[in-house]
Amino acid sequence: MAFALTPERERELQDILTRYPNKMAATIPVLHLCQDQHGWISDEIVHYVSQKLDVPPAHVKGVVTFYTLFNQHPVGKNQVWVCRTLPCALRGAYDIIEHCEKRLGVKCGETTKNGKVTLRTAECLASCGTAPMMQVNQQYYEDLTSEKVDEILRKLQES
């Protein structure tokens, strides 16, 4: 089989299995492990997870398509999500989104030509008290201003 987890991630998979009374419950955490390694969930990964957890491929596919955080296609090296929901919008989220689109030269949902950044909007990320905000890969950036955004995007383009 072409796809396999790295030994370290394989160990984590074994640890995940100890937490639940059955293997199916590990579907989401194991998909996260795979995406962490590969960037997106390919059909190969769907089959890999299905075999590892003794569940039908259709089950895994159904889970992948339900949750927005599983990428069904390759994405850029860095993920930028700008929160667009009301509490953030009340504090300037629409301007931040426009600013990002201008700076990166892409629309939300697209990836820059150099493959460095995928820009997307997000629904409320539980940081409404420090709005506007965005998430970059695993990091939250809060109380954004256009200067802060420029700095963040510049670093991503250099990454």
Binding site: R19, M24, I28, L31, V55, G62, F66, Y67, E123
Partner: peptide, 26 residues
Amino acid sequence: YVHTGAGAYICGEETSLLNSLEGRRG
């Protein structure tokens, strides 16, 4: 134990959350 979702507001609804915990669509 900590269990994680994968980005779906509806999984905050308790029975959806239980399905998600069991490894299903939420």
